[in-house]
Amino acid sequence: MDQNKAASPAVQYKKASQGKEIWRRFRKSKGAVIGMIMLLIVAAVVIIGPIFVPYELVGKQDWANYLAKPSLEHLFGCDGYGRDVLARVIHGGKTSLGIAVLATVTSCVFGSILGAVAGFFGGKVDALIMRSLDIFMSVPDILFTMAVVFALGANFVNLMVALTLTFFTNYVRLVRSQVLTLSEVDYVEAARAGGARSVRIIFEHILPNSVGVIIVNTTLNVAKIIIYESTLSFLGLGMPPPAPEWGAMLSEAREFLTTAPHLLLFPSLAIVLTACAINLVGDGLRDALDPHLKS
């Protein structure tokens, strides 16, 4: 009991100043700050934009504006149904980002738990989980996604399931190796020697210290998922029409490549800018968390 108390204050002290230190380092990197600002802009557009650009515009078909080029009235032009592209990009952001963030969170939770269990209990459990994972990873992800979407139809929930299945594997390995390395750290040995229960050790010691790595990976994964999602839409596995989702919009733009390139341009820009912003922030976080770069 007393020995536990002896272990905790050091950790807590570390945590308090750590946060501030991390933020300070983050702010130093120009790229990360720019990324943060871009991300905030994107978030603002996606969250506040719908107030200025009502949802009706997303589905409103205006035949006079069939494939209209960008103009003052329609900043991003109109698509093959005469719908305003700007409205669709803004509302599409909600869907695309929503799916990406949620899918990342679910794959993170699912994968981390599996990784923690594997790393902590070791032995047969570890071997079973890791070997099953290897087999699972040998099957190309496209296959799973196709199977899920094919069988159950393409909608928000099914896409989430398919994406989670594809991306959770990242976390298993990551968290497991974190658990393995951290298990050997002195204070954890001490805690264990003191008789602390496994769960407590995981939550009090290992997880807080892995959070950094997990957050960095999660951030980067959001970007990957956004891109993967658009690839799925391209293959016809994304959200069904007339959903204003960035990937689906790119798929629709494909046949108008030469006749209406603005249809390809704006959703692509949205994806690229968002993914870039996320990557910048993720990199900034990684640098901020890495003590080696303390020069």
């Binding site: 589905g59 409103k60 078909q61 093959g80 016809g236 069904p240 029409p241 007339p242 798929s251 046949e255």
Partner: peptide, 26 residues
């Protein structure tokens, strides 16, 4: 989603909405 039939479905969905009928495209 790129077949003509799917596009007609999207248009018809919008047409139905004009008379108050709600439909989903699958």
């Amino acid at each position: 989603a790129s077949t003509p039939r799917a596009k007609e479905a999207v248009v018809i969905q919008s047409n139905l909405a004009e008379i108050g009928l709600k439909a989903e495209v699958v």
